[in-house]
């Protein structure tokens, strides 16, 4: 622990300050963000926005370099063969380009949005059937996007990822296996007390944030 000052600093300074600020006080929130210009959590979101608004090939290339190898790996862990995983990862990135204008950074982190596309490609590849895709639907209200809302949504996902990593290994493995499609929904249902443990509070914070952005 002693040799991890950066991580400790990050975990206590930035996120906790966010979560202690009342959700309604947008003004204070943006001041905090300006003060701590260390956030890169929204970097990928900005890249997707550039792809959407300017067909920015450079931004797309950096998204590709970061996400494509992770999507491929994610799909291979989900039991997809290397060739299909490569194909699906490419398809996912093609869809990222075409659907960039549907990405709403106040509703999802870049990684979450890309995950949902990859997940659907996996289902399509495995079942060769249609999947209902509610994620393309616009949300009910469409308020003007606020920079602080965007950063915080991206940040929440980073914190949730950290919380998943920090779960005891048995619990972590159940959550990961669910997402790698290595467990069935019956097996999840049979888990007495889904071991979400400490990540539950993170999920709740993410939900509060989404609700706030819906207003």
């Amino acid at each position: 622990m002693l040799d991890l000052p950066d991580y400790i600093n990050q975990d206590f300074e930035v996120p906790n300050r966010y979560s202690m600020i009342p959700l309604c006080s947008k003004g204070i929130l943006s001041k905090v963000i300006i003060k701590n210009e260390i956030n890169s959590a929204d970097h990928w979101a900005k890249c997707i926005l550039s792809v959407s608004s300017e067909k920015d090939e450079e931004a797309f290339s950096s998204l590709f370099t970061h996400f494509a190898p992770r999507i491929k790996s994610f799909l291979m862990k989900s039991g997809t063969g290397a060739v299909t995983a490569e194909e699906c990862a490419q398809e996912t990135m093609v869809t990222v380009w075409h659907k960039a204008h549907l990405f709403d950074p106040t509703r999802a982190a870049a990684s979450t949005w890309i995950f949902t596309i990859a997940r659907n490609k996996r289902i399509d590849a495995a079942r060769r059937n249609n999947r209902p895709e509610p994620e393309d639907l616009p949300w009910g209200n469409d308020p003007e996007p606020d920079a602080s809302d965007i950063i915080i949504i991206q940040e929440e996902t980073t914190l949730l990822a950290q919380a998943v990593k920090d779960l005891p290994s048995k619990q972590r493995s159940i959550v990961e296996r669910a997402f790698y499609a290595d467990l069935s929904h019956q097996e999840i249902a049979d888990e007495t007390g889904l071991p979400l443990g400490t990540i539950k509070s993170r999920i709740r914070l993410a939900l509060q944030r989404l609700r706030h952005n819906m207003k």
Partner: peptide
């Protein structure tokens, strides 16, 4: 779904 985003990341 954000859990999935985190796991992908």
């Amino acid at each position: 779904e954000a859990i999935g985003g985190g796991i992908l990341e």
